[in-house]
Each structure stands twice: as structure tokens, then as C-alpha cells.
């Protein structure tokens, strides 16, 4: 028996909007730790890891570890039917091939049940090793989204370079080139507006911009985003989900032959 009640149902709606275009089908894993997902995009260039900790749910019952295969497009369709203020409850019986999403309006005057078919998905769980990153950049998530969108109108790839000067995002295309430098800036009114750069070593990596633009669909989940970079390792683009966990996107760099 599985029963997860999330008072801030909009979080789950936002999570699905953030991942549904990157990954088609995925297994959601439920354990005492929480509700999690790990999946790669179909070309195995990017990986998404989601964790919503059990403590973040108002009610969390998971009698045994369970893995539920879902089509994320269909799940997003169902969650779109929940209001932004609704409480969302996920329910599944042991051995069942369906999951039920229950949406309750805040005043309890409307209660809806949506039942979705589960699917068998062969997925490979990957071990993500702990790594010491050469540089970690924290910046407003809206600023990062703006940079990715702007650069993708010029080129297809972005070079991210971190030096003591700051973090530089560069692209080039048929019409010309673009460079955007963000310097560390901690003298802001609110901490979430700061750009903070921790650099152990300078690092420069090249990535496909279209993946970054997909990751920025997670922007509504967090005011800030963290980029962790090391040479010849996938970049980690992390959006923290307040009081619940995180959504992390890993993107393999482009590598010189």
C-alpha cells in the first residue's frame, strides 16, 4: 500500500512540467527515504535525478519499496487537471497496475480521482559517484534561464568557463558570436538574487544548449540554480525544492576528438 499526501500539490505539477519533455517513460521509486526518480533522455546525453523526501509529505505511507513505471507525458496531463492550490494524494495498492491521483481543493468542496495505468519499464539505475567539483556557481534561476534562451538564438553549443573573473557563457553561430560574463555579486537585497562563485580550479566545458533550455523548465521550482563543473565530468544543474529535496540534471559535455 502506497499513500503520499502532498499539501503543496503545485510542486508535483511543476516537477512534471520540468521533466516531461526530457524523458518519456520513467520509474518512480518509493521507499522510506522518499519519492524519487532517475532517468536518462533517449539519447543518453542527459540524466535527471529527482528526490522528494518523505518528511516533506503531510502523510507518507510506503509499506515496501515500490517502483512505478509511468509515462511522464500522461502523468503531466493528469496533474494539469489539479488546481495550483490543490492537495495531491498518490495512491497505489500492492501489485496494482494503476496509480490514483486524488486532487482536493483547499476548501474540500471539490475532490477528484484520476486513475492512470502503470507500465513496465526496463530502466538502468546508474551510480553517480561523489565528485569534487572544480567550480560551483550559484545564481538566480531566472537569470540562468534568460542566458540559455538568449544564447540559443545565436548558436547551438555553449562554452561555460569559470575563472577568477567570473563565469562566462559563450556561443557562436552563423550570424555571429555572444559572450555573457556574470561576476560574483553578493551585495544584493535578497540572498536568492546573489551570484556566488566557488572556484578551486579554472574550468571550461562545452555543452549542447538545447538540453540546458530543457532543464530551465524547472525554473518555477526554485529561485536559484547551482551549476557544478569539473573538467570531463557531466555538469550538474541543480534546482533545490524547498523543504523537500531537489531536481538535478546531469549533462555530458562535448569532448574534443
Amino acid at each position: 500500500m502506497l499513500e503520499l499526501r502532498l499539501v503543496q500539490g503545485s510542486l508535483l505539477k511543476k516537477v512534471l512540467e520540468a521533466v516531461k519533455d526530457l524523458v518519456n517513460d520513467a520509474n518512480f521509486d518509493c521507499s522510506a527515504t522518499g519519492f524519487s526518480l532517475q532517468a536518462m533522455d533517449s539519447s543518453h546525453v542527459a540524466l535527471v535525478a529527482l528526490l522528494l523526501r518523505s518528511e516533506g509529505f503531510e502523510h507518507y505511507r510506503c509499506d515496501r519499496n515500490i517502483s512505478m513505471g509511468m509515462n511522464l507525458g500522461n502523468m503531466a496531463k493528469m496533474l494539469k487537471c489539479a488546481g495550483n492550490d490543490d492537495i495531491i494524494t498518490l495512491k497505489a495498492d500492492d501489485g496494482s497496475d494503476v496509480v490514483t491521483f486524488m486532487f482536493e481543493s483547499p476548501t474540500q468542496d471539490k475532490i477528484a480521482d484520476f486513475e492512470m495505468k502503470l507500465m513496465d519499464i526496463d530502466s538502468e539505475h546508474l551510480g553517480i559517484p561523489e565528485a569534487e567539483y572544480h567550480a560551483i556557481v550559484r545564481m538566480p534561476s531566472s537569470e540562468f534561464a534568460r542566458i540559455c534562451k538568449d544564447l540559443s538564438s545565436i548558436g547551438d553549443t555553449v562554452v561555460i568557463s569559470v575563472t577568477k573573473e567570473g563565469v562566462k557563457f559563450s556561443t557562436r553561430g552563423d550570424i555571429g558570436t555572444a559572450n555573457i560574463v556574470c561576476r560574483q555579486n553578493t551585495t544584493v537585497d535578497k540572498p536568492e538574487e546573489a551570484t556566488v562563485i566557488e572556484m578551486n580550479e579554472p574550468v571550461s566545458l562545452t555543452f549542447a544548449l538545447r538540453y540546458f533550455n530543457s532543464f530551465t523548465k524547472a525554473t518555477p521550482l526554485s529561485n536559484t540554480v547551482t551549476l557544478s563543473l569539473s573538467s570531463e565530468l557531466p555538469v550538474v544543474v541543480e534546482y533545490k525544492i524547498a523543504e523537500m529535496g531537489y531536481i538535478r540534471f546531469y549533462l555530458a559535455p562535448k569532448i574534443e576528438d
Binding site: 540524466l47 546508474l126 553549443t157 555530458a252 559535455p253 562535448k254
Partner: peptide, 14 residues
């Protein structure tokens, strides 16, 4: 042009 890397060459199946 640099070649696109693959996640599976960095992270191993667990």
C-alpha cells in the same frame, strides 16, 4: 567540432 559525450561513459550501472 567536439563530439557529444554520453552519460553512460561517466556513470556506471549500479
Amino acid at each position: 567540432d567536439p563530439k557529444q559525450g554520453n552519460i553512460l561513459s561517466f556513470f556506471k550501472k549500479s
